[in-house]
Design a protein around this nucleic acid. Sequence first.
DNA 1: GCAAAAGTGTTATCCCTACACCCATGA
DNA 2: TCATGGGTGTAGGGATAACACTTTTGC
Lengths: 222, 222
Amino acid sequence: MSYSYDYPHPAVTTDIVIFTIRQDQLKVLLIKRARPPFQGEWALPGGFVNLDESLEEGARRELEEETGVSGVYLEQLYTFGRPDRDPRERVITVAYYALIPTDTVEIRAASDAEGVSWFSLRELPELAFDHKEILALAHQRLVAKLDYSTIAFQFMPTSFTLSELQQVYELILGEELDKRYFRKRILSLGLVKETGKEKKAGAHRPAKLYRSIHPDRVDVIK
Amino acid sequence: MSYSYDYPHPAVTTDIVIFTIRQDQLKVLLIKRARPPFQGEWALPGGFVNLDESLEEGARRELEEETGVSGVYLEQLYTFGRPDRDPRERVITVAYYALIPTDTVEIRAASDAEGVSWFSLRELPELAFDHKEILALAHQRLVAKLDYSTIAFQFMPTSFTLSELQQVYELILGEELDKRYFRKRILSLGLVKETGKEKKAGAHRPAKLYRSIHPDRVDVIK
DNA sequence: GCAAAAGTGTTATCCCTACACCCATGA
DNA sequence: TCATGGGTGTAGGGATAACACTTTTGC
């Protein structure tokens, strides 16, 4: 079977930068390429877009194939199309990034052996294609969005404490925040509400649990 | 001549939202489609990406073909890929937006007869494909960037008065700004400098002319 | 001399920041 | 009772917002 066109067509893929927080670090999912080009090197998960699916559907399909996760936050990042970015043929990739909540149970990447693994942004290996550039842009976008949106909530489980949320901000920003100001600011947005439950976590006062008012939405704030 | 692939490939185009300021209005360039689909309807300029050019090169080529203009600000906006957005075949379009300075001499769209024309954002015709959506997103991006970048400078000629710059902000934002605060703020950025020349424009005090320190760059501010 | 846009300072308000102690719990 | 993280208020400083009159020119 072969497909013919009157003029040349590029291939179109989606690549996904999948972020999560594990072990108090911001991590990204990479897969070890099983085939050339760049065989044996680490790369972002991704693949060709089917002709009957939208770009976002393609990205979600790849995301689910690699991690088994669905229904998480996914946003288009940028489209990369340098003519020589893939040695096989002209490949244009529409890059997305996804945020996976911290409690999402055992996603496939748990097993290192399969060639799928979480990497801290501080300890990235060499990456295939222009994936280093894609990852850097995704990270930059994420950091920028912390400032003017509720994107960080997408890393949180259904209910969470304000200290947990603050830790997520601190991890991504790489700096410590003032506890009182952080709490005042988050609560003043009116975008989280108390669940009425508490989280007991050891020999100290239990923390109130909150949940997002719009768990499926990222609000622009400020 | 025909091109064959082992699996189906989409077509990839670039479409460009070309903004300028004319007649005290924010305008966008549209072309009347000469061929089906959507023959006779207005659409954004754009076209297929050549296999040996990058996406941005393709967009600049289209921009120059439609307007004769080169060297202006151009930024990737978003990639649109609904499977049914073009009735002919699967077409994925990488949308860009461009800003053209107000003084750029007679660009081709001047002649309405050729089926190329400037439209005020307030008086848009029906648009082909999903171009209404693309244009709306470009406008939204432009408005957002006014707030935290020097993108408005890209509409200005090489030298300009602060009142002219303020008018551009007011036009795009659709609201009046305080003259003193505006001047203080712009000057405090340190991104414009006096040319030493003045602009005489009628029966009133001449205005100092300024120019951008980085005419080729959009700085993030605040 | 008058009409028209250019140019200029001060004050009040709000928001952000910095900062330290008590509370509830488990061991 | 002690160690641990949860939870709370206030005062000072800096940035923002509001506001009106004088200057320079062409006619």
